[in-house]
């Protein structure tokens, strides 16, 4: 049954998948509770422009995607402070802008359709050794940052004003979290694809919230659900030749529906 471990590409895909499954909800939970889920999706679409630049210039597309994504998140933050009335429309603006730029570059290059497909929808065969090293480094950095600043991120997410009054460096910590989001989104594209990468950061968290547990338990549950989604999704991708992004996200949605049912019939408030 587990003969796929014989293949190097599968081992790379599974390790990368596990790392992404763990750090996705760790960052995602702070986006969800601040009602900022759309950010992950926006950065994913902006990353596509980065991927296109990478394919065009023959630089590793994950690296170019990360650069573009980080620059965008800094731009979003800069614009957000002076244009509060725009709200989520600002994110939509970057989403469309990223997509439009990607389409233009793709039409100029005219010829990397096959590889582009894997970036759009995720592909377990595409994780290179270099990608894997980068993803593992990101995983370690994320664990340290979220672990080290956990109580500060919690306070900022729950009540930013209170955090400011307490003298916590809200701006700096927000920026760290946003840059981490941007990098995580870009790296996860290999496995889940641009179109669905936001889903992996959001769906396990909203499923976990249906269990009505405290914040820390909600985080643990969401990591568990995310791991199940990624591992089942990658297996389905291997056996049935589905695009991995699709099978991972559909699994996550099935788990969400299951959590909804559980919440309705078994979990008391």
């Amino acid at each position: 049954m587990f003969e796929f471990v014989k293949y190097d590409f599968m081992i790379r895909a599974i390790i990368a998948g596990i790392v992404i499954a763990i750090i996705g909800p760790m960052i995602g939970i702070f986006l969800v509770v601040r009602r900022y889920s759309l950010l992950a999706d926006t950065l994913a679409h902006v990353s596509l422009a980065g991927v296109a630049i990478g394919l065009l210039t023959k630089i590793n597309p994950i690296i170019t995607a990360t650069v573009v994504s980080v620059l965008s998140v800094l731009g979003i933050e800069k614009l957000k402070s002076g244009n509060k009335e725009l709200g989520e429309s600002l994110l939509a603006l970057f989403l469309w802008g990223g997509l439009a730029l990607a389409i233009i570059i793709i039409s100029i290059a005219d010829g990397f359709n096959a590889s582009l497909y894997s970036y759009l929808f995720g592909s377990i065969t595409s994780v290179t050794r270099q990608d894997l090293v980068m993803i593992i480094i990101l995983g370690v950095v994320t664990l340290f940052v979220i672990g080290g600043f956990f109580k500060e991120f919690f306070l900022i997410s729950f009540d930013e004003e209170q955090a400011k009054i307490n003298g916590i460096k809200v701006k700096t910590l927000n920026l760290i979290l946003l840059i981490l989001t941007a990098v995580c989104v870009s790296f996860a594209i290999r496995i889940v694809g641009v179109i669905l990468v936001g889903a992996l950061m959001v769906i396990p968290v909203i499923s976990a919230m249906k269990f009505n547990r405290n914040f820390v338990q909600t985080l643990w549950i969401s990591i568990g659900l995310s791991l199940v989604s990624v591992l089942l999704g990658i297996s389905a991708s291997y056996y049935f030749d589905f695009a991995s992004g699709g099978s991972i996200v559909l699994t996550a949605i099935l788990i969400f529906l299951f959590s909804l049912g559980l919440n309705r019939f078994f979990i008391k408030s």
Binding site: F154, S157, F158, Q162, R213, N214, F215, V216, T218
Partner: peptide
């Protein structure tokens, strides 16, 4: 926000 009274007071 998925947090308990204890978590909020602790913050």
């Amino acid at each position: 926000f998925p947090a308990t009274v204890h978590e909020i007071v602790k913050s």
